[in-house]
Simulated scan of single mutants.
Amino acid sequence: MERLPGWIRQHLAALRALLALTLLTGAIYPLLVTGIAQAVFNGHANGSIVQKDGKDTGSALVGQLFTDTEGNPVKKYFQSRPSAAGAGYDPTSTGASNLGPEDIVDTLPVPGAKNDKGEPDTGRQSLLTQVCSRSKAVGELEGVSGARPYCTPDGVGAVLKVFPAVGTPTRAVSVNQACPAAPFVASYQGVKVECGKPGEDYAAGRTVPIRGTGRAVVPADAVTAGGSGLDPHISVAYADLQAARVAKERGLTRDQVMTLIKRNTTGRALGFMGEPAVNVLELNLALDRLTP
């Protein structure tokens, strides 16, 4: 029997290797790993699905909003932290806003103007103004002060543009407060502060954030979005801040609500990494079981 040509033998060897590796990596290994995961980590391997009344209501690993159809917080539920993933906690749009600490100047909407899509101009809020407006809203919801450093009382970034950029100021503008709003400070180094005029270019001015006084009561995670936009947890401090409101809405004592918070708080990873956190979905489901 004649030997096959060398090039044919090489192709047959390659084909056998392809079939063997396909069977090993495409079937045996995935089935083995899946079997181990199902046997050892069944709940986690299937997405950590949380059920209510026998129906899937979410995942313990993915946050969700507890708002009404108009986006307002439902007061009987604990609220999650903000999310930059799509319209909020959208797994198909997971990600952060990518705005940094130097993003402090808004683009004010111009009345009557339209964007490239023909929609009314809405401007653009800086990261600082997003934080300030969220802090103000949380403060109003929880009945506490929503004030924080570098924020105006009306919930935008406390930022001035000073002209000229170098030298003695001759003009100062509160760029994040559109006219006819009253500027958060009356004067800066002896110069009267103006309100911001939509559409006017203030790029040539020197940017001066004003810290103000006082200490923030609203925790940082209540006003900043997580890196993935899917974080299911909030800090213990933010949960504590919401406890009085939830207790009142559900006719419970604050102690009852605090007990549920403690039951749904996870400790630091490996005992020393990160901070204790509260799973909002599981906490709200525990509340529903207590007061249907």
Rank of each mutant, 00 (worst) to 15 (best):
K136E: 10
G6H: 04
L61C: 09
E2P: 14
L19P: 05
P101E: 14
P180A: 06
L241I: 13
A158I: 06
R268I: 15
E249A: 01
D106C: 07
I234G: 00
L128Y: 10
K52Y: 13
D68C: 06
P82M: 10
I36F: 09
G6S: 04
P5A: 15
Q51C: 13
S97V: 05
L24H: 08
T107M: 08
H44M: 13
G86I: 00
A165C: 12
K75S: 03
L283M: 10
T25I: 13
L270E: 15
S187N: 13
E200W: 05
Q51H: 15
E275S: 15
G196W: 00
E282T: 13
G146F: 00
D116N: 13
V175I: 12
H233D: 13
P209A: 05
P73T: 03
T224F: 15
L108Y: 01
A137C: 06
Q64M: 12
A27M: 08
A222T: 11
I210P: 02
Q256G: 10
A137R: 11
V208S: 01
N46W: 10
E282V: 14
K197M: 11
R263L: 15
W7P: 09
G214A: 09
L128E: 04
A239M: 06
G227F: 11
V185L: 08
S48C: 06
A37M: 07
G214L: 10
H44C: 03
G88M: 07
Q130P: 04
L285Q: 05
T168K: 15
T107E: 06
M258W: 13
N176I: 09
V144P: 02
T170C: 12
Q64T: 09
G271H: 04
T253A: 03
P91Y: 10
E70I: 15
T122Q: 14
G43P: 12
V33A: 11
L270Y: 11
